[in-house]
Design a protein around this nucleic acid. Structure first.
Lengths: 235, 235
DNA sequence: CGCCGACTTGAAGAATTTCAAGGTGTGTGG
DNA sequence: CCACACACCTTGAAATTCTTCAAGTCGGCG
């Protein structure tokens, strides 16, 4: 509302809730204005696809709000979820090639989208942004590799226990008490993450409930009753 | 044989066989000299460990020669190989944290090792190096995610077929004819890559041989007789 | 109230692991 | 040069785990 000089158009970065955590966090005011110019906000409904598997990589994005899944399917239609993207996470494949996985919103979501070629050019000119992206990519690679151990070497019980513990941790980071939380995912989605069938997931859940490790107050809610025992089963 | 001015100490980069493919490929002569100063060459014998799982990340490295595995183990001792590092690949975890996997030489190997803090500092000051590292890390993440589909959703036959095809491709990149090649790995190591037991790997190999898809002239050698059929089985 | 989708449960079947021998090939010492 | 040891691989049979197929059940919503 004031002096000459503050007449620049409002930037959606100004009100961005992940502004301090996403890869843009190290950028100056001016740099942000440029980035703001090449990006746009986009709302996604739950179930909406942002990127298709095998598409030429034409866009990249930052997650502002909501949850998205990265996934790939076998030719006979079974799906494997390769990762879940949370607010402030980066999506897509900069610098060439195609995106070897699909990206779909699991909940209603908001993302900040860039044309890949615009983003690539901007990134190459802004080493601090590239550095952030590198750190994020390295961290994501570590998480992904850790998940390979689960997929390759754990049985159903260990997979479920690991999954629930991680979900609890995530929920408590987001403000939960670390015991009761909401799975944001259907049984089928959990199965697709763990490389199991929906029936096996369901049976393991029921078993853990009957053994008093967890409670299942409603379909998507979980309460951890005996964290230690759960950690034992996750190994 | 020379003039004054060529008295600089010989740099191991000068004779480096991966010089044009590794992350150092974009560096100038001077930059290379600095990097040369903070790194050192190291020979590893097959089976020798370079980095231990869970260690604080104190060093990073470039692979010059040989094959190394990245792996992680469950508490009951079963191992999952998370990746294989080839010449020109980068190893280790720059920018903080611990290394969540072990690195061990599969063959005699030569690596170019840096103290992590030296490398981190150098990298931050050399955006072109960071850019190379970013591209490499993104590519590795893609490969790793692709592997998750194999681990989570493929059966033993599909896993083996995929593995053999990929091994053949790698061998032909390195100069093979794409049909006959040497597995550089033991049956147990293949099992650890595919998330199977050694017996299952052995049975699948025998089955494919008896079906005329492949031949196994010696323990570690493979000849692909019917690539198309193999591709079918990999889906 | 009844329908629908999501979830659970059961029983049978298939795939993989586990346990247990039995080969094969290479290198070493007699 | 042979024999033996050892590591690595193969094979067989039983056991286990997970999937598949097939009914249910539950909970919300028109």
């Amino acid at each position: 509302m004031d002096a000459i000089g503050s007449t620049a158009p409002a930037s959606f970065c100004d009100t961005c809730t992940v502004r301090n955590r996403a890869i843009c966090s190290d950028l100056s005011r001016d740099e942000l204005a440029v980035l703001n110019g090449i990006g746009r906000q986009r709302r996604l409904s739950a179930g909406e696809q942002l990127i298709w598997e095998g598409d030429e990589a034409v866009l990249v994005a930052n997650v502002v709000e909501g949850l998205l899944k990265l996934s790939s399917s076998t030719s006979d239609g079974r799906e494997q979820i390769l990762g879940i993207a949370f607010p402030s996470d980066f999506l897509g494949r900069p610098f060439g090639g195609s995106t070897p996985y699909g990206v779909e919103a699991l909940t209603d979501a908001q993302v900040c989208v860039f044309e890949r070629k615009d983003f690539d050019r901007f990134a190459k000119e802004h080493p601090r942004l590239e550095h952030k992206l590198l750190e994020r990519t390295l961290a994501e690679l570590d998480r992904t590799r850790k998940w390979m151990l689960l997929l390759g070497r754990m049985n159903a019980e260990q997979k479920l226990a690991s999954f629930l513990l991680q979900a609890a941790d995530r929920a408590s980071e987001a403000g939960g008490d670390g015991r009761s939380f909401d799975l944001q995912l259907s049984r089928q989605q959990i199965a697709d993450i763990l490389g199991l069938t929906i029936e096996t997931v369901s049976r393991q859940m029921t078993k853990m409930k009957s053994q008093g490790l967890i409670d299942l107050p409603s379909r998507r809610a979980v309460t951890i009753l005996d964290r230690e025992a759960l950690e034992d089963r996750a190994e």
